[in-house]
Simulated scan of single mutants.
Amino acid sequence: MDTQRTIDAPDTVGPVLCLADIGFDAPAALLAAYGLTLHRVPDGAPIPGSYWGAPEAGIIGVDVHARGDTPVHSLLHEAGHLIVLPPECRAAVHTDATDSVEEEDATCYLQIVLADALPGVGRDRLMADMDTWGYTFRLGSTRAWFEQDAEDARAWLLARDLLPL
């Protein structure tokens, strides 16, 4: 097992990068490449399929729901849950997609890698935002986990052809 990880969405969050900061176009294109659709939720409205509640992204089937105040790390994490699932299993997903610790670890790894595909984001910013938001890893930071303790998550993704070599 790679991580001893919890995610505690704080009541007040420091400055993390949100969709309003980068726009919806690049994230929508990234998700579309994986067969997913990004739906923009009006500011202040509830986010369908959000596990943690607003402003966290939500997932229902192949649809990812987010608002302008949704953190980019949340969007990539929830989309990552759908990406790691076989396409035939996605339709059954509503709000919670985690099937195992291995899948959760793979999702965390994938969200970091996907950040490099978004202009103005990148893995360094995403890992800092994950730490700010409250992700905790056994080695003390997202970066330490990603660089020193995530080989099982990377192998899991490579075995399913979900990462470039």
Rank of each mutant, 00 (worst) to 15 (best):
E56A: 13
W52A: 11
R123H: 15
Q148M: 09
C108I: 10
R67G: 05
D161L: 08
S141F: 04
C108S: 14
G35N: 02
H94G: 00
A150I: 11
D152W: 00
L38C: 09
I112E: 09
V62D: 14
H73M: 15
A115P: 00
L163N: 09
L118D: 05
F146N: 09
G61D: 03
A115F: 02
L38G: 07
A97K: 03
E102M: 03
T37G: 03
V93C: 00
G122Q: 10
M1D: 02
F24D: 06
D11Y: 09
Y135P: 04
D96C: 04
W145Q: 05
M127W: 03
G23D: 12
P15F: 00
G134T: 09
A117V: 05
D11I: 13
D11T: 03
A128T: 15
D131P: 01
L38W: 01
R123C: 15
T107Y: 03
D43W: 00
P42D: 14
Q148W: 13
M130R: 13
P86D: 15
D161F: 09
R67Q: 11
R123S: 15
V72M: 05
A26V: 12
D8V: 14
V62M: 10
P119F: 08
G58E: 06
S141M: 05
A45V: 02
V13W: 13
M1N: 08
L17N: 06
G58D: 05
D131V: 04
E147H: 13
A117Y: 07
A153K: 08
S100C: 05
P48Y: 02
F146S: 10
G122T: 06
R125Q: 15
E151Q: 14
S74I: 04
L36E: 07
T98H: 12
L163Y: 12
G58A: 04
L82F: 00
Q4T: 14
P46Y: 06
V16N: 12
Y51H: 09
D21V: 06
T98P: 00
L114T: 01
R138Y: 01
Q148H: 15
T95H: 05
W156I: 02
C108L: 15
